[in-house]
């Protein structure tokens, strides 16, 4: 166990000094890696640990982004505070969705449809609210300052996104070892059996969705102040829903490091291959390769890459 912490500490130390030697572009890749690892981790809390598949997590990303931006533009509230307001709102909406789903015992595909429906309905509603920029979206002002969560270079974004990811790891680690986390895993393995053993499944399902929604929405605030543009289709749309779940699935669902490993593999893969093939005039090929690798992983490593990674690392980590 000690060795695991030493290895993680080493990795973190390397990540902390990376900005000293990387260009802004390379930092941009790392920022996207951390961002998607964070979102994947947030999604993992619900789907990975309780087994309820959500295909509508973009909903919470969008709520976080729109709430913090709205509060900042209207009332001058710093996104650092606004993002928690977004988190609370996302949690409430998550709880409402969870209430409908868990109270009435929606399982599997029916729960999936419910989550997609919520994301799509919100997308359509936001597309027609003028105060939220309706279908033209919101363009953020660029006023770099710490209070505004906006910066000129990539280094602050790098550390913030790294902080987000590390925090999510800590939260999920605490959750994993807590009673609530164990109950959630019990629900995932067999909800009926868990219930029979006295687990209040409704309560822990609701807990999981609230935490997951809260965490996801903080990511939305980061995205808004990094990209400076919000559009209902990109914030609530299906492509973000899918983008968000790919990494934990490839990395390893329901594991602490799965989303991180998935993001550290998929994000650079898509970036580097895009840049490489674009130069050779073979644009589009990177998407094919990305797709093939995802399919191969799902076919041959259904439990995710993390399982194999653990096997490789075992000799190093187990020597006490």
């Amino acid at each position: 166990m000690n060795r695991t912490y030493i290895l993680l500490g080493l990795i973190l130390a390397v990540l902390l000094v990376l900005p000293l030697m990387l260009s802004k572009y390379m930092l941009g890749i790392f920022i996207m890696m951390y961002y998607y690892a964070y979102l994947g981790q947030s999604w993992n809390v619900l789907t990975g640990y309780t087994g309820h598949i959500s295909l509508g997590h973009a909903l919470y990303v969008g709520i976080g982004a729109y709430t913090s931006v709205f509060l900042a533009q209207r009332y001058g509230l710093s996104p650092w505070i606004g993002m928690f307001a977004g988190g609370v709102l996302a949690s409430l909406i998550g709880l409402f969705l969870g209430f409908l789903g868990f109270r009435f015992g929606l399982r599997g595909v029916y729960f999936v449809i419910l989550t997609i429906a919520f994301a799509e309905i919100t997308r359509l509603i936001v597309s027609h609210i003028d105060a939220l920029g309706s279908f033209t979206g919101i363009f953020l002002d660029f006023n770099p300052s710490f209070k505004n969560f906006q910066f000129k270079g990539n280094i602050p974004y790098y550390y913030i996104s790294l902080g987000f990811m590390v925090m999510s790891l800590i939260v999920v680690r605490i959750l994993e070892t807590s009673k609530a986390g164990r109950f959630m895993v019990a629900i995932r393995e067999d909800e009926e059996a868990a219930k029979a053993l006295g687990v209040n499944t409704f309560k822990y399902n609701m807990f999981a969705i609230a935490v997951s929604a809260f965490m996801t929405s903080l990511g939305g605030c980061f995205y808004a102040n990094y990209i400076f543009y919000l559009h209902p289709n990109t914030m609530f749309g299906m492509s973000l829903n899918i983008e968000l779940i790919l990494r934990p699935i490839v990395g390893g669902l329901g594991t602490l490091f799965g989303p991180v490993v998935g993001s550290f593999i998929l994000t650079p893969l898509s970036e580097v291959s895009r840049a490489y093939f674009a130069k050779g005039g073979m644009e589009g090929l990177h998407l094919v390769i990305y797709g093939i690798i995802t399919i191969l992983v799902v076919l041959f490593m259904p439990k995710g890459i993390i399982v194999y990674l653990k096997k490789w690392l075992k000799p190093i980590l187990s020597k006490e």
């Binding site: 572009y25 990094y226 895009r274």
Partner: peptide, 15 residues
Amino acid sequence: SKPEVGRQEADRLIK
């Protein structure tokens, strides 16, 4: 067709 990819690509070309 994605804003974040466009941004990332622009950053790469600047580099």
